[in-house]
Design a protein around this nucleic acid. Structure first.
Lengths: 306, 306
DNA sequence: CCGATCCATCACGTGTGCTTATGGGAGGCT
DNA sequence: AGCCTCCCATAAGCACACGTGATGGATCGG
């Protein structure tokens, strides 16, 4: 007594058409094909569903009952196709993005705006998170995309995840007002330093050690606004990636490129195959476009200030 | 972009099971079978529905959307099977019966009572109608069964309909009180007659002509109670089939069998195949049982009165 | 490092399901 | 009446869909 769903829909076509022959025409089949399906359906049902006359068919009580169910099934099927078309045509969809702070402040708003302009129905859920949090979130399926970064080359060991590089930006020296330009990193060995987020701090330590000294970390905060405020008051010097300075630039700090500070690789992490999901792919492509244009991450007045 | 309903249900099985392998086990198939169906479904959908990991699969947004629809489809399918089981198991169902007046008063109530006793959920819709009305109603699908009759043998020319004979009953002479028993029908040539329904009247005329006279039809009514009242007051004589007298017997009329009045064939008319519909078959069988028992149609005191 | 457990892919064979062909029954038209 | 047309069912044939079995790659846990 297990009914075949497809045959249920065939029954519906027959009852709507009024005759087996007409239904076959609608379905693009021949009449015996439909006839055989109906016989099988009635066999499974154990009860006659149709009364055959010479002018067509009419439903028995059981047939009419099944017709009601079949209508509901057809409606669901149609709704499913509509929903799918909306998702594929980017008239609907939701992308969950996690981004590190300065990326969330620069690349992301521009990308979301471009996406919203092109596809009104697609919404983006943005959460601010450091790569330590965002990458596992993608892995766990809690996010679709993670805007992440790594110093010294693209990150390794992402497991089954994919790294899509967006841009490579310099790490810049940020000093207080009225300070002369140092020729090398080693010249700043005796300065008090301000440390940023965990990864940036780690990278800064490595850079200084490579330059031959252990920096004195006077203050530590992962907020690039706070960092610059400390530096602007002369409480230390620091190094910040370009996009952090594009997001916010304290008027009293001086920004200079300096050899040895290295660079930061920014990219997007996603699961394999996630870039085939239309909404996700659309946001991804907007992020790439914005990064390639570069306007939103170029720090203001590098080297020109002071 | 036309989705296959069966594959939609397969997707549902996969998402419910959490992995393709587990779903295949549930479905009684092998893993590649399910895998191939999913690939086809994703091809039709044009959008990835699943994200494959090494521990199983998780739904994409589109997959989750389809899952909701698939759940609804599965629910409808289950409901359909339930409904069908109820109809087949006679826990539900409705039979539309049309019956001629005296049949509706005798055979039918007993049959309906027996059916209701055995199958609580089955309901019978009864309409009183002469064969001229009820048989076309069955043909048109407005009724499932027609309790009908014909004089002089089972009716011919029913078209595609089936005649199930129930019983053959005599047509009896009904006279007023204190009237001597006539030896032949011809002895009543000069009596005023009371005519019944159209068919009965036609049959009566034919019988009288066969006996050599044209009866004078003083009154005409298709109500067998009215007929007997007229006869009881001495306003004429008439002939009534046994079941009309079983339904109602005026105390002042005399009932006698008389050669030449013929007999009436009572039976049920239905469309070909309708006797395979459980509820219809059940009522049909009750009608046959009641007719065979005969108690409800045997007129009271035939030949004993007066 | 190996075993277990996912998944995808390929090649192959069977059975489902479509086709063509044929026949019967009922209604409508001349 | 007789024919024509429309409906349906059935039978036989053939093809493709859709199963199975075998194999390989990837990941996780012991």
């Amino acid at each position: 007594m297990a009914l075949d769903v497809r045959r249920l829909l065939i029954l519906r076509a027959v009852l709507r058409a009024g005759s087996i022959t007409a239904a076959a025409r609608d379905l693009g089949w021949t009449q015996p094909a439909v006839s055989q399906h109906l016989r099988a359906l009635e066999r499974d049902a154990g009860v006659p569903l149709l009364l055959r006359t010479s002018t067509g068919v009419t439903a028995t009580e059981a047939g009419a009952a099944l017709l009601g169910r079949a209508d509901a099934v057809a409606a669901e099927l149609h709704a499913a196709e509509e929903e799918l078309a909306a998702l594929a045509g980017l008239r609907a969809g939701r992308v969950r993005l996690q981004a590190f702070p300065s990326g969330a402040a620069t690349l992301v708003p521009a990308a979301i705006e471009a996406l919203a302009r092109a596809h009104r129905g697609v919404t983006v859920g943005l959460e601010e998170a450091e790569p330590e949090t965002s990458v596992p979130a993608v892995l766990a399926g809690d996010a679709d995309l993670a805007l992440a970064f790594a110093h010294d080359g693209p990150p390794a060991d992402l497991g089954p995840l994919v790294w899509r590089p967006l841009l490579v930006e310099p790490v810049l020296l940020v000093t207080g007002p009225g300070r002369p330009a140092p020729s090398t990193l080693a010249a700043l060995a005796d300065e008090p330093w301000v440390g940023g987020c965990v990864r940036c701090r780690t990278h800064l330590l490595a850079a200084c050690r490579a330059a031959g000294f252990e920096p004195a970390l006077r203050h530590t905060t992962d907020d690039y606004v706070v960092v610059q405020n400390l530096v602007a008051r002369g409480l230390g010097v620091t190094a910040l990636p370009a996009s952090a300075l594009a997001a916010y630039r304290h008027p009293d700090v001086t920004v200079r490129p300096l050899a040895g500070l290295g660079e930061r690789h920014v990219g997007v992490v996603h699961r394999v195959g996630a870039d085939a999901v239309p909404a996700t792919a659309a946001l991804l492509s907007r992020l790439e476009t914005v990064a390639a244009a570069g306007t939103s991450v170029r720090p203001v007045g590098v080297g020109a200030a002071d």
